[in-house]
Design a binder for these strands. Structure first.
Lengths: 108, 108
DNA sequence: CGGTACGCTACATAAAATGTAGTAACGGAG
DNA sequence: CTCCGTTACTACATTTTATGTAGCGTACCG
């Protein structure tokens, strides 16, 4: 695990602990964006996320713990990991990326 | 440098090379989101970006090269690194994060 | 009891990032 | 011309982070 995200506490690259900096640090950790993305439609279990991303179990576990600490995802025993209300809001901000990414790829 | 992003070519965690996967890989690299963020208002020079982020020059250089290859930023001799039209579009998708992050931090 | 799936962990290896120092090119001042 | 500052960028040893593989402990199904 890298570091828990705590408001007001400095993160890598920012001593102020401003929310946007906390968020950019968290989202910039490897696999974090991808994990959120994989949960966009339905809850998925630990092993499913591992298989979907191809990341090592060690890091999947670390990231899931960090995302849980950030209250963006939660573990529901019955269905698996799923986005919280907060996590869904964040995902909604990211959804336009999907469309935009295709336009972007065409210009590369 | 990690890997250049090329449409149709696999990236870490995806063999398909789908644009959204390329994008999530690129944006998930450390300092990438932060660098784009730092360029949101005006062009900045290499050293300014280094100072603003606190990242090592090695990695700043790598990430800037990757972002240039992805046509999200460009180097203007007169003013420094700045977002391309494509980069600005991407940033626009990210701007709502700023507001949202404060709400998020309050709930942590 | 055997088999399966679950979240999760240990640990050795490999990859990525850091910190420090330095290069080479340019322009201006003395 | 030499000295000085600024520019982008690089070399390289050290530290941090991620990978790959194996396995744990629990629960359920048969």
């Amino acid at each position: 695990m890298v570091k828990p995200i705590v408001p007001g506490r400095p993160v890598r690259g920012s001593k102020t602990g401003r929310p946007i900096m906390l968020l950019l640090d968290l989202l910039g950790r490897r696999w974090v964006l991808r994990l959120i993305w994989e949960l966009r439609e339905e809850p998925r279990r630990f092993r499913a996320l591992q298989a979907a991303t191809g990341a090592s179990p060690t890091i999947v576990n670390s990231r899931l713990a960090e995302l849980r600490a950030a209250k963006l995802i939660e573990l529901d025993e019955a269905s698996g990991y799923r986005l919280t209300a907060l996590g869904s809001e964040l995902l909604d901000l990211f959804l336009p990326l999907h469309v935009w990414s295709e336009k972007w790829a065409r210009r590369l």
